[in-house]
Nucleic acid binder design. Structure first.
Lengths: 345, 345
DNA sequence: TTGTATGCGTTATCAC
DNA sequence: GTGATAACGCATACAA
C-alpha cells in the first residue's frame, strides 16, 4: 500500500459481491465471466449485488491468472501525423471488434535508439500479446529481435522479411497508377522528385515506380533528388530550368504542397503551366479548394487487415497472405490537367 | 491455461532468474525494483542472470500487488482528427515523463451512448488511475459519475463544473482575438457563422465572443447560424446577399475551408472581395498555399498541462488552477486582408 | 449447482 | 544482507 492510495476508496472485488449476495466467490466469478453453470435465481442475486456495489472486473487480476492480456502493442513513430492518426483509430476499432485492446507506445518523438528500446520494453512489461509496428523509418533489423519473441505485424509499409507479416498499400502499383494518370493527361516530359530507397521504404519504391512507369511508356523523365522536404525551392528552379517539362510528381502530399507554394511564389500557374501530383490524398488536401491529385491508401482497410492478421497469428493460424499489398485508388484533383488544354485555357 | 497459450514460450519470472543466479526470489525482486539493499556481488549476478534469460518485469503482477497501474485513461471522441492526434501525442509524452502510461479508449467512432459507456468501463477494468476526457461534445453530466470515482481532467475544452478539473484554450479570448484582427484590418460589416452554445462547448462560446467583440467595438454583425458544416453554400449565398459585408468569420478551420470552396465556386475573390477567418490553425491549412488566418491553440501545452494536473490530483495535491485557460496565438495568413487595400488590388 | 483450495508473478513484512 | 511467507483479485479443477 503506497502513499498515493491514502484516502482513495478501494474497488469492490468479487469477494465483496459474494458477501453481499450471500454466495461464494466462485459463483460470482462464474456469473461475471459467463463460464460454468449457475442457478438462475442466484445468478440474478449476484448480478444485483454487483450492480449495487458498482463492481467492475479487474482486468489486471484476470490477466494474471489467465496468462492473457487481450492487448496488442502498437509502436508508432509519430502519432500526430494524419496518416498514423487514422491508422491508429482504425486499428483500435478493429481490435475492439475482436475483443482486444491496443496500447500505443511512441519513441517519444525523439530519434534516439534508446527511446525506441524503452518503448518496446514498456510494451513487453505490459505483456502485450503481439506487436504492431507503424513506422516508415524503423529498419526491419530493429524489429527482428522483438518479432522473435512476439507475433509481429508491420502496418503501412512494405516489408520483405519472411519472419515478419506486413500489411500495406502497394507502393509500386500506386506510383505507377499516378504515373499512368499523368501520361493519360497527355504529358510527355515529366519531373519526378525521387527519394532514395535507403531513406524511406515507402517513398523510395513509390517514386521509383513513378519514374519507371513513365519511362516504360515512353515519356522523358527528369529525376530530382528530394530526400529533404525543405528544399522545395530547389526542385522548383530545377524544373523551371527545363521548359519542356509539363508535370511534376512529388513523393507525398506534403512534398507536393511545399512545391505548390514555391511554384506560386514564382508565379507559375498550376495546372495551367505545370501539373503537380502528390501521394496520400488524406485530410484537407483533397478538398476542392486545393484539389491535390494523388494516390489514396486505404488506411481503414490497412488498419483492420493488420489487426486481423494479428488475431490470426495469435490464434496460431497463418494469415492468408504473409505480405498483403492492398490496392489504393487514384484521387483526381485539380492540380493535374492536360497540358494542351491548359495552354488554351 | 487457455488454448491460445499452446506452443507459446512462457516469459521468464523472477523465480527463473533467482534459480539461475542461485538466490531467492526476494533478492531478485529487490535488484529489479531497486528497493532494499543487496550485496553488490549478488546484485551483479542477478543482473547477469536476468539479462541472459531476457527477463522483463511483469507490469501486470506488479500492479496486482502494488495496487497501482501507473496508467491514465484517455477517452477521446475522434482520435483521427488532427487536433486530438496532436493532443494524444503530447499527453503520451508528458505522461511518460512522469512515469505514467496513457491508454486511450474511443467511442468506436459511433455516437451511441452504449459505446461510450463500454469505453469508459474498459478503462475502469484496466484500473486506470485517472481519466482524461477529450471530447468537445460529451456533456459534463455524462462525465460526472466517473469523475466521482476517479480523478478526472477535461482537456481541450472549457468546463465549468467545480468537481472537474479542466485545461483548455480560452475560447472567449481566441474569438475576441480574431475579431480584433479583423477589425484592425479595417472591416466594419462582418458576418459570423455562429454555433449555438448547446451544440458545442468550444465553438459556441468562441463564435459568441467573436460577435460580441465585433459589436462592442462598433462593427455591424450578421450572425449566420452554422450548426451543420455541410451548409457552407447557404452561408455563402447569405453573405453575398449583403454587399456591405467585407469579411466572414468561421467557427473552425474546417468550416472556413468549406466556405472558401463555396466562395471560389461563386467566383468571389479571397481576400480581394471577402476576407475569411478560421480557427485552430493546425496542419496544412496554415501553409502559405492556403494561408488561413485564425487562432492557434497551444495543443502541446494543453496536453502537458493536462497530464501535470492529473499527476497532481493523483498525488493528492490540488492543481494550481482548477480550470486553466491557456492563451492561444493569432496566426496571420493570407485569407484575411484590409478591405480597402484589396479593392485597389 | 455450489463451495474449497490452489496458483498466477510480484512486492512487502518479517525473521534470520 | 538474505530468505521464507503472506497477500493482491481472479479463474479453475475438484470435492461436496
Amino acid at each position: 500500500m503506497t502513499d498515493r492510495d491514502r484516502g482513495r476508496p478501494r474497488n469492490p472485488t468479487i469477494i465483496d459481491v459474494a458477501h453481499r449476495a450471500g454466495v461464494s466467490k466462485s459463483v460470482v466469478s462464474r456469473v461475471i465471466s459467463g463460464r460454468g453453470s449457475v442457478g438462475e435465481e442466484t445468478r440474478q442475486r449476484v448480478l444485483r449485488a454487483a450492480a449495487e456495489l458498482g463492481y467492475v472486473v479487474n482486468a489486471v487480476a484476470r490477466a494474471m491468472v489467465a496468462h492473457r492480456t487481450y492487448t496488442v502493442g502498437a509502436f508508432v513513430r509519430d502519432a500526430a501525423t494524419p496518416f498514423y492518426g487514422h491508422l491508429l483509430t482504425a486499428m483500435q476499432e478493429r481490435a475492439a471488434f475482436h475483443g482486444y485492446r491496443v496500447v500505443t507506445a511512441t519513441g517519444s518523438g525523439r530519434f534516439e535508439v534508446s527511446d525506441e528500446y524503452r518503448a518496446l520494453e514498456t510494451l513487453a512489461m505490459l505483456r502485450v500479446e503481439a506487436l504492431i509496428v507503424c513506422s516508415g523509418m524503423l529498419p526491419s533489423e530493429q524489429i527482428l529481435p522483438f518479432a522473435a519473441r512476439l507475433p509481429t505485424v508491420v502496418a503501412g509499409r512494405p516489408e520483405t522479411h519472411p519472419n515478419i507479416t506486413s500489411v500495406y498499400c502497394d507502393e509500386a502499383e500506386g506510383g505507377a497508377g499516378v504515373a499512368d494518370h499523368v501520361l493519360e493527361l497527355g504529358h510527355r516530359e515529366i519531373a519526378v522528385v525521387t527519394v532514395p530507397m535507403s531513406s524511406s521504404v515507402t517513398m523510395g519504391p513509390r517514386t521509383a515506380a513513378m519514374a519507371g512507369r513513365l519511362r516504360k511508356r515512353g515519356a522523358r523523365v527528369l529525376e530530382i533528388p528530394g530526400a529533404r522536404g525543405e528544399s522545395a525551392g530547389a526542385w522548383a528552379t530545377e524544373v523551371l530550368r527545363h521548359p519542356g517539362i509539363t508535370a511534376v510528381m512529388a513523393p507525398s502530399d506534403r512534398h507536393a504542397i511545399a512545391l505548390l507554394e514555391q511554384l506560386r511564389l514564382r508565379g507559375v500557374a498550376v495546372p495551367g503551366q505545370l501539373s503537380v501530383t502528390g501521394y496520400d490524398a488524406i485530410g484537407d488536401l483533397t478538398t476542392p479548394l486545393i484539389g491535390l491529385t494523388g494516390w489514396r491508401q486505404p488506411i481503414d482497410l490497412i488498419g483492420s487487415r493488420t489487426v486481423d492478421a494479428v488475431v490470426q497469428l495469435l490464434d496460431g493460424e497463418q494469415p492468408p497472405d504473409h505480405h498483403q499489398a492492398l490496392p489504393g485508388t487514384l484521387v483526381v484533383g485539380t492540380t493535374a490537367a492536360s497540358p494542351t488544354a491548359d495552354d488554351i485555357d
